[in-house]
Design a protein around this nucleic acid. Structure first.
Lengths: 114, 114
DNA sequence: TGTCACTATCGACGCATGTCGATGTCCTGC
DNA sequence: GCAGGACATCGACATGCGTCGATAGTGACA
């Protein structure tokens, strides 16, 4: 993985690397119709409304949540593309060593002449 | 997802939510034999040795890397269990709304009598 | 028009984190 | 025993982040 590839995935991981935000995303996903407004989400947390709004903004800016205003309420919905990107990231990773014999390799940087 | 479940996954995500660490894990996975020592990894970054060591420690404490000392070198190897936990997390999530019609739901918390 | 409810933004505070230089620990080879 | 290399730890610094209270913006309703 190059530095550029890492720079693409890290914002998504950063957005999810918070207990409040990953629960927010889970709540939105499991909510009726796959969408929820702030007033649906806030009661699940012991946090103030601005804090919830802040976390939703982070998820939105990371591309994980879609935002839509309907009258007084703002509805958030998960964006499957972002979730799929995460799925593919981890689906590709562990295939490297499923049951390989793990041949001990000599270090290359410092040279094998130790 | 409960707060407890989130608390279990978040440390893994936090450990990966860094461009250096996700590249370190990728390098270890793709390295010969699925393992690498610090001297193999450091040349890929413009960072000092203590910083690389710090990031490897974070990955190790999160359960993502296994650590083994052989002589002067310390070899790091990915732990498939942790990667599988990540895979399952994201594999279960996006199945909520693949092509659902998204029926507009009224907010429940503030009551519909607004 | 005035009021109320829902949500976002702002400014501030404290804590966590990434990075570095200096140093310590452990092993190898002479 | 001594020198040198590989890696970890420590202390310090700057930056980022989560949280709050206060406040602004916007739509609904009487």
């Amino acid at each position: 993985m190059t530095a550029e590839q890492a720079a693409q995935v890290v914002p998504l991981l950063k957005a999810l690397a918070d207990p409040v935000r990953i629960r927010l995303l889970s709540l939105v996903l499991s909510h009726e119709g796959g969408e929820a407004c702030v007033c649906d989400l806030q009661p699940s947390f012991d946090l103030t409304q601005p804090t919830i709004s802040h976390h939703l903004k982070v998820l939105h800016e990371a591309g994980l949540l879609h935002r839509e205003k309907r009258g007084v309420w703002v509805y958030y919905r998960a964006r499957p593309e972002a979730l799929e990107a995460m799925t593919q990231l981890f689906a590709a990773a562990p295939s490297a060593t499923p049951a390989t014999p793990v041949t001990p390799a000599a270090p290359t940087a410092a040279g094998a002449g130790a």
